[in-house]
């Protein structure tokens, strides 16, 4: 049995980009991982009428308290896979929040005190995993290793259970994310 921390906590994550980048999928995987840890979760989404293109986002709120309002309003973490989504949502990133951007698509981001992880995720996926498809899993796993918002074990189980036919390549993406986080040099903070 896992022991829950006695202090109340609530983490709000927004995963954003354009339709077809798999953001709703990773929102679901993160929510599954948090559910398996016995936490309260809400996962909501917003997307346009088209299955590809247009803006798309998934919100995941994780807490050990009841969650009333299901949309993320002040993000603890923001993943932006397009410039448009980064521009739109960065102003709502919390003071101590972290920003993860795919530099293949996101060129400009001005943060104040927040931590930024900027990597060409799509390029890395193509070069090291042979396809751009697992970019979403790569970015999600990076988020999880960088923030420990859910445990590695819970993430692994959620990825494995999600469409088993893709589990092998998705787990490779997860492994690669661990390496990327370990090697990432955060710019010195004041």
């Amino acid at each position: 049995m896992t022991t829950k921390p006695k202090i109340s906590f609530k983490k709000e994550v927004r995963l954003s980009g354009s339709g077809g980048q798999g953001l709703l999928t990773v929102g679901l995987i993160l929510a599954e991982a948090a559910t398996s840890e016995g936490l309260n979760v809400t996962q909501t989404q917003s997307y346009g009428a088209a299955s590809r293109g247009g803006s798309s986002r998934a919100d995941v709120i994780i807490s050990n308290q009841p969650i009333y309002y299901p949309e993320a309003t002040r993000f603890d973490a923001l993943v932006a896979l397009t410039q448009e989504s980064c521009d739109k949502f960065l102003p709502s990133l919390g003071e101590n929040g972290i920003l993860i951007v795919d530099t293949v698509f996101v060129k400009n981001y001005n943060v104040t005190d927040q931590k930024v992880f900027a990597l060409p995720f799509t390029m890395i996926a193509m070069e090291q995993l042979g396809s751009a498809l697992p970019t979403n899993i790569l970015a999600l796993s990076f988020l999880v290793y960088a923030t420990e918002i859910v445990s590695e074990k819970a993430l692994k189980a959620a990825i494995t259970n999600f469409k088993p036919q893709f589990a092998e390549s998705n787990l490779k993406a997860m492994k690669l994310a661990k390496k990327l986080v370990a090697e990432y040099d955060l710019p010195m903070q004041e």
């Binding site: 679901l28 929510a31 559910t35 309260n40 979760v41 809400t42 996962q43 909501t44 969650i67 299901p70």
Partner: peptide, 9 residues
């Protein structure tokens, strides 16, 4: 639409 697509444990 929000409740319909929302997930909760």
């Amino acid at each position: 639409a929000m409740l319909g697509h929302m997930r909760e444990p």
